[in-house]
Amino acid sequence: MEMRKGLRRLTAVLSLITMAILMTGCSDKVIVLNPKGAIGKQQLDLMIISTALCLVVIVPVLILTFYIVWKYRHQPDRKAKYDPNWEHSTKLETIWWSIPIVIIVILAAITVKYTYLLEPSKPLEHEAKPLVIQVTSLDWKWLFQYPEQGIATVNYIQFPANVPIRFELTSDAPMNSFWIPQLGGQIYTMSGMAMKLNLIADEPGSYLGMGANFSGREFGKMQFTAEATSQEQFDAWVQGIKGSSPALTKEGYEQLAIPGVSEVESFSSIPAGLFQQIVTKYGGHNHGSGSGEGATEHHHGSDSGEADATDKAPAMDMNMDMGDGASMNHEGHMNHE
């Protein structure tokens, strides 16, 4: 009796929650499900495909669970069969080893395909030339440099919609993670390395940007706005900053890097090579020089696959040699020397 009441209560709660999900799912607030850029949209496709594949198994299992628990509950005049010694059936077990294997094989194939397709350092195919924004996570603020425009901002970025954006990311503080959910997934910002993330906004709008990885006391304040506008508005904005904002000097950067929170700021010029200096500052770092060179290279606008290879290498071969002994690392070192 108790059980039946409980089950009904649980079903009620579950259906309420499902309704809540469906209702909020339609609203704009669930930003990951409401992407505004090509990358975010493909990632959403992948989420939907993988969820659907999982539900193919999960839903029958849940139904089966409730059915079996209900049907085989102990009661005085039960009609269902009781077979205490039934413990094995090759046929059944083959079935349920195969079902998850099949699902996982399908999912794995899709995942591998998308992993290469959506590799964040891969340039987007687009007729427009990408805009470069150099991102530095500081204690507890974001510095954005526009090397081609020669301006910089703090905790705010603006860029034209329908133009690919090539983010180059590093950190001058504990690791953080750069995330604009409506444009696409995040990537870590790490000292001594220049990571790359290619995103695009399909339509103008104001998007939430987050520092996603915990980095200390005021980590919660590391949020920023990413504004996608028309090309004209973007150009006007750049001109506005050039005309009215102060310059960012080396000393100004040192000031900015002191731990603390910051308002939105803008600078009309940036010291030459600041981003590369931040990356190479941790120069003795494992493979640091490799990534430093990578960063310099694409600063000159190089999009070649080679540049990609050099600065993807650091994190990659490190992961590999964690997995397996000496030889790997040695090769890694050779590459860099």
Partner: peptide, 19 residues
């Protein structure tokens, strides 16, 4: 377990991670 499988889909994890 199902949401775990969703998280293991690497490119989608870029959106789930740290959230």
């Amino acid at each position: 377990g199902m949401t775990g499988v969703l998280l293991s889909v690497a490119p989608a994890d870029f959106q789930f991670h740290n959230s």
